[in-house]
Amino acid sequence: MKENYGVHQLKIPLPFPVASVNSYFFPEPIPTLLDVPPMGDYFMKTLEKRLNAVGSSLAEIRRIIITHPHIDHFGSARDIAEKGGVEIWIHETAAQALEEYEEDFLDTNRFFESLLRKSGIPEELLGQTTRFFDWLKGFACRVVPTRLLKNGDEFRLSSMNLRAVHVPGHTPHCMLFWEPDRKIAFTGDFLLKDISSNPLLQRPWVVPQGYRSVTSHARSLENVRGMKLKVAFPGHGEPIYRPSERITELLRFMTRRKKQIRHILSTGAATPFQIILRLFPGLPPDQLLLALSEVIGYLETFEDEGLVERHETGHGLSFRLMDRQ
């Protein structure tokens, strides 16, 4: 970090397409971790080693703050909390995802398996994707939050007076934490330096009616750009020292992606999988869910704008451009 904010960035390697996750350690006033790695002995030992290197240990942790309920950001929370007296904070809408982790994970798995099949995914690829999803389940377990955060909540960590900001899009539950005076923020997966954070598709029955991942993500990006941040510390990768420029890049990317999908549909109706093949040739199976979320997320925005029509039968799901009179 270019400036000492009284926080330590702890980089933990991951066995996922994204190579590592950042956990941030704040020694004062209460030893706190912002996000923690997946569950497992390797991750606990690595986190312990990183904490030892900055003069602390897992036994000293008294609070965990989670930016969003994904396994690479909360998976080891229960194991750390079991050491005694550890608070766990997360956004108020994410409590169920943690408290009912196993049931919630299986429900999500069933939703995506059905959607993948309807979207035209071949059975071989479907099997590989569902096996990958099953493998991921073992990297977290049920944990009960002790405080549910709301937009605007404030608290002190090290030398910073941080404010919680709800930034739905990557998930409906994402939060960043920023200090308005110095214009720094800890952004989780909402804003990353080298990766375009996917607005992930959600089960319709667990989000507010009309929730749209892509639309919500774009709106959150616009709102955070207005904060004129000077530096952002993300959930993966290196700090971002020109966050507003990075946000502008992402919004332009989203505009280009819309044009690409509309161009594909200009040649005729297509299933989501056919669109994926055009957008992402050679896509690895373990990234198929991310691609599907992105494609259907944009298609949903087109539906809302009256640009495309959904056609769903027992044989599958397809979309076509609406005739413009």
Rank of each mutant, 00 (worst) to 15 (best):
N161R: 15
P180Y: 11
M1Y: 04
R203H: 05
Y241N: 15
I184T: 04
T271S: 15
T46P: 06
L277K: 01
L299G: 13
A59D: 15
L148D: 12
L265V: 10
E294D: 05
V207I: 06
F302S: 11
L321M: 11
W89S: 14
V231Q: 13
I121C: 15
P180G: 02
T146E: 13
E87H: 06
F190M: 09
F111L: 07
F132I: 10
F302W: 07
L279E: 10
F111N: 12
I65E: 13
D104M: 02
A95C: 11
A77P: 00
L317Q: 06
G40A: 12
L221F: 09
L200Y: 14
Q274R: 02
Q287K: 08
L106R: 06
L201G: 07
L201K: 03
R246D: 10
V295Q: 10
T129A: 15
R147P: 12
Q202N: 15
H73A: 11
E222D: 07
H8F: 12
G235T: 01
I184F: 12
L148C: 14
I264G: 03
K83D: 07
G85A: 14
N198I: 05
P27E: 01
N109V: 09
D134I: 07
I195Q: 08
Y298K: 01
N52A: 13
L221S: 08
R262I: 09
F132A: 14
G237R: 04
N109Q: 10
W178I: 05
R310I: 02
Y42K: 13
D194K: 14
K2S: 12
L162Q: 03
P204G: 12
A270C: 09
E100M: 13
R110P: 07
M1R: 04
P208F: 00
E309M: 03
Q202K: 15
M44I: 09
D72K: 00
L14D: 15
F190R: 00
T248R: 01
G152Y: 03
E124S: 13
L126P: 09
R131V: 10
S20H: 05
E48K: 13
S23E: 07
P37K: 03
P15H: 04
M227N: 02
D41A: 10
